[in-house]
Design a protein around this nucleic acid. Structure first.
Lengths: 328, 328
DNA sequence: CTGTTAGCGCCTTCAC
DNA sequence: GTGAAGGCGCTAACAG
């Protein structure tokens, strides 16, 4: 049997569908007794209104879209937790999609979401110039960019990446070692800022070498072999600044398997402070982005935009340096 | 300006809305030249069809719902990855909701999803008797239950929990120690089966004690204090069977902070094989549920049900014992 | 091949 | 308070 409609309920209650609709939307212009009658029937038939019809007729969809790169990076799962913590209070549903760092996928899922007329969208864009951002802007629907800074008034929430890099630079300025190696990922605004903050505020004399495009957990294995063979980190006292905890943890695990002493031989500093950073083989010194708060802030900003509240559209969260066992 | 409709496009192209609709749905009954003309206009106006209207008119929503307990348990994030890996191929979107182990929330989000007329739902129920399961069954929409076994023909995908417990029982039967302590979570079918499998197949003489309702990462800290104070695990050689990696990793971290030797003083066996189990302070011996496969299988089954394919509705995945460093 | 015509289920004026 | 009627944007017959 096909699901009941508002008309079925109306007939059963001997009222018009308009009255049922009023009951549904808690309009106050219904006589208490009819309201009760209708409600009873709705319950007894366990009638569920058709979401599409309501939205077509102009109701908000009460769902917000979240587009992130991937779920396997703990960074993003914590973001989502933060978002849900806020949005679920107001009974919003979450529609999720993963861009897998691929601009075409990002584009596709954003278009998809736009056609679904969600009430708002949170996007962690694959790049600051992503076409998806333009699509959002043109669409006119409320949106928030996550993990990037915009100069043109577009709403965003991010950690202060320059500041985070600076914290690491200052920390290392006070230390002695034979070499510093920075291991960073694909070219992105966030990583570039971390790097800049680090370089501009490192005030020592140790030579610095940089490896780029090391992005995934899997990459960390390969880079370890290079670090040992080419950079002799098992002989020279080395500090590794890895601009992403996910990779840093992979490296720690790999180096431990080679029996390399962390932190005395190789000292490692990560970035993000994902939950497992304190749990891994050697608890990781890192820069905390306060990830859950990042997600919460994005959600709050989006809700503000949805309700047309006048608020600060550029929200930057200050990072904290967290000293653990992986560094001296 | 409000978004363009199919009629706007029709006018611009000098055709009827029906023709535009045909172009949209790739119907072959359109003259190539008109098709091209319409397509050009659609592109140039970057027109996006209204999802609600399409669905109201009978199109499938192309989105499937996923209801899990929480995202912070890595077990579920891997499940979702598995699901997305399958469903994204067919361009499905994912609507996600978190029950937080609360039946009322579970109920609410399921109702929500039912009103949204999703094409299918994957639910990891809070319990085998959850009312939400009845709602799904009554609704008539395709669904798959995750992480539980049903006897009444309802479609489900789960690991073989009895078998997993058995693997641990057999493994420990060959070992000597002063005490075995099982640490398990809230009463649930899956955990009960793991326990049963373990007990019925443990063939040794070591006394076994059990702690229940230890479910979250946070709980692991408290239980450690009890284990040390009451059970003297720092003195007696102990084996811990923790029926959930998340908790096991918390315990490892805590015990390491107390400088307890793992595995020589305390040997620990987990369950699930979440990704970080091999990365934590002491790589964890555990039972692999092949989690991603679990998610993939659930997605495949759901897609089969959606397309009315005749398939096996009871899918049980065989677990594997994984020996790592946390046990002898 | 293409246009016309009904709905899909609900909400919202506008009368009564 | 309540009902009737039109419309939200699109699809699916049915004609032509």
């Amino acid at each position: 049997m096909s699901p009941l409609t508002i008309n079925d309920i109306a007939k059963l209650a001997n009222v018009s569908s308009a009255t049922v609709s009023r009951v549904l939307s808690n309009s106050d212009k219904v006589k208490p007794s009819t309201r009760q009658k209708v409600k009873d029937i709705i319950d007894s038939q366990s009638y569920i209104p058709n979401h599409f019809a309501r939205c077509l007729a102009g109701n908000p969809s009460m769902t917000i879209g979240v587009v992130i790169d991937e779920l396997s990076n703990l960074f993003f799962t914590e973001i989502v937790e933060g978002i849900d913590a806020i949005t679920c209070r107001d009974k919003y549903s979450l529609q999720m999609a993963f861009s897998q760092w691929i601009p075409e996928r990002e584009d596709f899922v954003i278009r998809n979401m736009l056609s679904s007329h969600l009430d708002g969208i949170i996007l962690a864009p694959t790049s600051v110039n992503a076409k998806a951002i333009d699509l959002l802007e043109q669409s006119g629907i409320p949106y928030v960019l996550l993990n990037c800074e915009m100069e043109d008034g577009k709403p965003f929430v991010t950690g202060d990446n320059y500041q985070g890099g600076k914290l690491v630079g200052e920390y290392l300025s006070k230390q002695d070692m034979e070499q510093i190696i920075v291991i960073t990922g694909f070219d992105s605004q966030a990583l570039a800022l971390r790097y800049k903050g680090f370089i501009e505020n490192y005030d020592g004399t140790t030579p610095i070498k940089t490896y780029r495009n090391i992005s995934t957990f899997e990459d960390s294995n390969n880079i370890c072999d290079i670090l040992i063979n080419d950079d002799e980190i098992n002989i020279k006292k080395t500090t590794l600044f890895v601009t992403n905890d996910n990779v840093a943890i992979g490296i720690i695990t790999r180096l431990k398997n080679f029996n390399i002493d962390i932190p005395n031989q190789v000292s490692i500093i990560g970035y993000d402070d994902i939950k497992i950073s304190k749990l891994c083989r050697v608890p990781l010194t890192t820069v905390s982005q306060q990830i859950t708060q990042l997600g919460e802030e994005a959600a709050k900003l989006l809700l503000d935009l949805i309700s047309n509240k006048d608020t600060e559209k550029a929200r930057i969260i200050t990072p904290k340096f967290i000293k653990r066992d992986s560094s001296l």
